[in-house]
Design a binder for these strands. Structure first.
Lengths: 338, 338
DNA sequence: ACAGCCGATGTCAACGTTGACATATGTCAT
DNA sequence: ATGACATATGTCAACGTTGACATCGGCTGT
């Protein structure tokens, strides 16, 4: 229970009968130290349970903390979890620590998280911007040389590195797939807010495919919802139309899940569906889900790699990387229009 | 491009023509400061883009960093993602920052992550132990008053706070449900390694249910696999037995997913299934999945709340909290034995 | 008019660590 | 014996911030 002071380098030094500096040398493998001294220091370290104070070290060394800040919109969303996993594995291989914070899609929370990270003097930032985020305030940091990479969604009001999926192209391919199977009325179940970058891009891909096929765009075939249940309701609205769609395109993982659930509730196995984002249970659904798969871990890893190259001194101009998507054909997209 | 020095409090002070201490007072709303001075300081802060250095502050204040370390086994697993989300929301409400690290189920990595967190002087630790983790090394920290809460799985070799789901009881209820529908040969698809706490508990619940019903335990009905694909293979092995089970109990979310996939691949809609952990698509499956749902966010939130109470000085002895599970009946568990 | 007090600010040291530089031995070649 | 040099360690200040205490003018009440 004794809330005692944590031992410092000086405590270790006193125990051994040397100076803190000598202990520092031992711990950092720096400069010449007599073998015997080294051993006695190590023994004292173990005995006292000494652990270096990284805050003090970083402050003295002046440098930034060997820490990388990651801001994501929702920890609970498996897509972002997987992205974070991809970032983490690359970052760890480099001996850096990852600090993760969740902005809950709130621009204000995002700013305050970023401020916290900056106050901690992180070495770099990876940001999945919140829907209404705005990043002019980071201009000074970028000028000062702090590596900042945006992930999944580009920065707003700031030129910076960015890694995104091939949203528009993937979406276009998915919708074209439905059109190729004869569908002419294709519903779009999108994310909210509709201004969200990925939602806009994927919607554009949807329009692209319609245009390429010479199909008219029908505004009433577009519905939105941010979470699974809202997406299910959005899907139900589409199914209830006077002239309902014969096929659906879902704009993200939650929308896909919601659409599948809504179709199931309505007992409609005849409606074709292609989802952006693959789902773990895709192949077990009836019909199995055809999906535009994005590689979340790869996106995260690419962003992390980009950050590391910046840390290594790469000063070239801001780069945008696009990670390709892959259409996985399983059945739900191949249903013919009834 | 100019990698210039970041402004310090002293820079701000010089700009205004006061002392660093005065700036400090303004920024911390402490002591009396003339209105005019306050405004000039704030103006200088904005002009220079000053941001306080938390590392320096924490060091001086001696106290620990206003940061909480969370160690989870896998960032990509939605269960842990949701847990982390639950922790984060409670922690944020308190103005603390969450540092998340992933141990990849490696005891060594877990130890090194914990060491990093300790070196950063986090205010508290929440740990989801890796499968083979061992925590004697944290005894000194606990004695020194550092709040440490274990989550989902208890500590090994250390008496400490712990928040877990009602694994054994939930599992027993799930299996009892299958037995109530007439099943006598019930397969168990478990996690790996089999020594994993949750796997052991849930397996015990399975045995409990069998025993209570006077059913024999058949070792050949137990198969394991850690990820979704391995679980699918494990399930396939069970289905291929000479005397195959008429029902399955899956011991976690990945096992459930894998079991569903394997049943689907085998075209076996006649095999009953109850999964531990609910799945987002549960209701859309055919048959809909009956599941023992655990509230991952609540588990995370409970652990965070426990940590906060410790930070607030609660010195009572180590507590173990059990979060109840809920059996959600949907159909897959109600299939009758063929 | 003077003690006493309050408001506004300053001075100094310390948190734990390490970089720059200094010191004290011992070894070796000349 | 002497200087040159390497090895092993020590001294001191500084990183950016804040706690403890000091200072200084003006205002209050008597």
């Amino acid at each position: 229970m004794g809330r005692m002071r944590r031992p410092t380098m000086t405590d270790v030094a006193r125990e051994v009968g040397v100076t803190a500096k000598t202990v520092s040398r031992v711990l950092n493998d720096e400069g010449p130290v007599a073998m015997e001294t080294r051993e006695r220091v190590m023994a004292a370290v173990r005995k006292l349970g000494y652990q270096p104070n990284l805050m003090a070290r970083n402050m003295r060394v002046g440098a930034r903390d060997a820490t990388l800040g990651l801001v994501i919109p929702e920890l609970g969303n498996p897509f972002f979890g997987t992205v974070a996993g991809g970032v983490e594995s690359v970052v760890r291989a480099r001996g850096l620590t990852l600090i993760v914070g969740s902005s809950e899609e709130s621009a204000a929370l995002e700013q305050s998280l970023i401020a916290t990270f900056l106050a901690r003097r992180v070495s770099a930032l990876i940001i999945v911007p919140a829907a209404a985020g705005e990043h002019r305030h980071l201009r000074a940091e970028r000028m000062a040389g702090l590596p900042i990479v945006f992930l999944d969604r580009p920065a707003v009001g700031l030129t910076a590195d960015c890694v995104v999926s091939a949203n528009r192209e993937g979406s276009r391919a998915g919708v074209a797939h439905l059109i190729a199977h004869g569908h002419r009325r294709i519903g779009f179940v999108g994310d909210l807010p509709a201004t969200l970058y990925t939602r806009r891009e994927r919607f554009q891909g949807y329009r692209d495919a319609l245009d390429a096929a010479g199909l008219p765009f029908d505004r009433s075939l577009v519905e939105n919802g941010h979470d699974q249940e809202a997406a299910a309701r959005a899907t139900a609205r589409l199914l209830a139309l006077a002239e309902p769609p014969t096929a659906l395109f879902a704009g993200n993982n939650l929308a896909s899940t919601g659409a599948v659930v809504a179709l199931s509730r309505a007992g409609r196995k005849d409606v074709a569906l292609v989802g952006f984002d693959d789902l773990p249970l895709a192949e077990a659904l009836d019909p199995p889900l055809t999906a535009v798969a994005q590689d979340a871990a790869a996106v995260g890893a690419a962003a992390a790699a980009l950050v590391l190259s910046r840390l290594d001194g790469d000063r070239s101009k801001a780069r945008r990387m696009t990670v390709p998507t892959r259409l996985i054909i399983r059945g739900s997209g191949e249903l013919l229009p009834q």
